[in-house]
Design a protein around this nucleic acid. Structure first.
Lengths: 348, 348
DNA sequence: CTGTTAGCGCCTTCAA
DNA sequence: TTGAAGGCGCTAACAG
């Protein structure tokens, strides 16, 4: 195997010292333009690329960002092949931003429920020494993890977390998104709008419900508590909640579900009862994973900007590592509402 | 930031030398069981995890496997949100296998068409110094890349490549898969089975067509060359090919498409012409990305075992790095045929 | 502005 | 069976 080209070769080629090359590579100050040019020419000629491993040894940066996902949920999503694309979207936002600054992103799966969360995270960090971490739900609000990172002094971003606290909180305005979704239905003429909640384990669940409530309040419309259905993000819970809602004496004419799977469940239950979507029952979902684009009819959905959030997270972490000051402690990324065929005015 | 625990701390804790700890970590020979035990206790107590960066500096292993994907195609898949899950499946197979041996997997996007492929790959390697590479199509058969890796002496695996050559070739039996898909249609009673090819840029395209041909040959059935439609893996090409096939004087009663997108296109075109799937036209697709499970009717599809292939690739690379001998130069992973609602006997 | 020195944490080689 | 010395490629701290 051909020996790799190192900073030494570049130094020799350019006729300068090791350190000068290092300065040029890291855009350090105090190098004459003429020397910079000579070094850069040598770098290009030799095709030199610094070794990340060595950089992390000498200095204190690894140029690595680590994303922590929930083990069970991620594997479940992969195995079931239900078309969720969280990881893809994260990679798209995060990897591309990392590449812009010579960083790399690496994924790790961590078991939230394990008694050893802390040890697991610590092990991953010890092995790779990332410059920053990106936490996804439910890790984002796990004090065991955030506490550890604070103790280690490692910068981190919490995706989809609106709670203030340590690290950067990156989120969309979940409450407003729910509100906008409900307003969309109200504008269509619906007055009884059911809501299927998410699992209590996730902070967003309560926030989304709050948006549903506020949409009614803002317009001075009454809200029947019976229209709140109990879900936990699974398809089955969506089926149960929908069945309960449709069994009401005065059933809803529209349902907002806290995620796509439960919205699909609502669609299935509606179909089973001979209800036509959207005319007998409008459905709006949350997240907009690819699968809802292929349902019949395609689903109106709140678009969760995962790629943008991850990009923002990577951006902040990279800048934090470069000691940029005055960074915001939280970022709110705009959400979208994709209006498709599952929402329409109610039958009059 | 609390200083990280290093091999030195462990050595001190266990009352042995640095080197002995290193031997225990790496399961080296010549250490007394009693000492091993003492060291292991110290490791556990201190929560020591070796730094990958340091390991790669001193020794020669980085415990990193690098997967190279085509930049444009991957970003296109992520952006379009069409529900393909190549990357997820690769991560599932690769990451989990890596984790079993303390390895990590990292993704890189490489532009195949760029004049600088070689430089791009070389840069990624120089930065991360992976112990092995996993190439995905179309990189798998790119001599610029494989040639470079051979020169560098880096082990690599070529996913979905059946061509013998350098590196490990990991594939499913593409020809047999196509043949089995066609036989499924023949068994249903179809006699005019159209085929939509993939892009010539991918070696599998020709191989899949060969399976279609062989299925007929094996049963002594004639094959009308007009039944071969020209595709390039895009939805649009699938539409064109289907339109051409259906315009034949004697149109096919079934179509096998070389990937899911083209199969969906066939379904769309059929619907637009008032043809009912599967009764007027049966459709079978290749790959089985999640989206085809949600089409109406759900698509019968050849299941491409991406996770298994990536797992096999990671497994071979890890073993190769550990100098295990007698490794196979190629691995054929079993494929599947998911029979769903898009295939049925033709109208008699 | 530029060069020199001293590690970073680990593994390889050699000596005990 | 164990330990000590040297170096991997780079950067921080200090000299010049």
């Amino acid at each position: 195997m051909r020996r790799a080209v190192t900073i030494k070769h570049v130094a020799a080629e350019a006729g300068v010292s090791l350190q000068t090359v290092s300065r040029v590579i890291n855009k350090g100050p105090n190098v004459r333009p003429a020397v910079i040019e000579r070094v850069e020419a040598a770098v290009a000629k030799l095709g030199y690329v610094p070794s990340l491993a060595a950089r992390r040894m000498g200095g204190n940066r690894s140029f690595l960002l680590m994303a922590l996902n929930d083990r069970d949920r991620t594997i479940e999503a992969w195995t079931s092949g239900q078309g969720a694309d969280w990881v893809d979207q994260m990679l798209m936002g995060g990897m591309l931003r990392c590449a812009e600054s010579g960083y790399h992103m690496i994924f790790e799966l961590i078991d939230t429920h394990s008694a050893h969360v802390e040890r697991e995270v610590q092990a991953a960090i010890s092995a790779l020494r990332p410059d920053g971490l990106i936490l996804t739900p439910p890790h984002s609000d796990n004090p065991q993890i955030t506490g550890l990172l604070v103790r280690l002094g490692l910068p981190f971003a919490r995706l989809c977390s609106e709670t203030p606290g340590d690290g950067f909180a990156i989120s969309m305005n979940e409450a407003l998104a729910a509100q906008v979704a409900v307003e969309h239905l109200l504008d269509l003429g619906h007055r009884r709008i059911g809501f299927i909640t998410g699992s209590d384990e996730y902070a967003v669940s309560a926030v989304r419900r709050e948006g549903w409530r506020r949409a009614h309040e803002d317009r001075g419309l009454p809200l029947d508590p019976a229209l709140e259905g109990d879900g936990d993000f699974t398809f089955e819970s969506g089926e149960r909640a929908t069945a309960t809602l449709l069994a009401l004496a005065e059933p809803p004419t529209a349902i907002l579900a806290s995620n796509d799977q439960m919205a699909l469940a609502a669609q299935t239950v509606a179909a089973a009862r001979g209800l036509q979507v959207p005319h007998d029952l409008s459905i709006v979902s949350f997240d907009d994973t690819p699968v809802v684009r292929f349902s019949r009819p395609p689903m109106t959905a709140v678009v969760q900007p995962i790629a943008e959030m991850t990009r923002a997270a990577a951006d902040l972490l990279i800048r934090a590592t470069a000691n940029v000051d005055h960074l915001p402690t939280s970022v709110v990324v705009p959400f979208g509402l994709a209006v498709r065929g599952s929402s329409a005015p109610p039958r009059s």
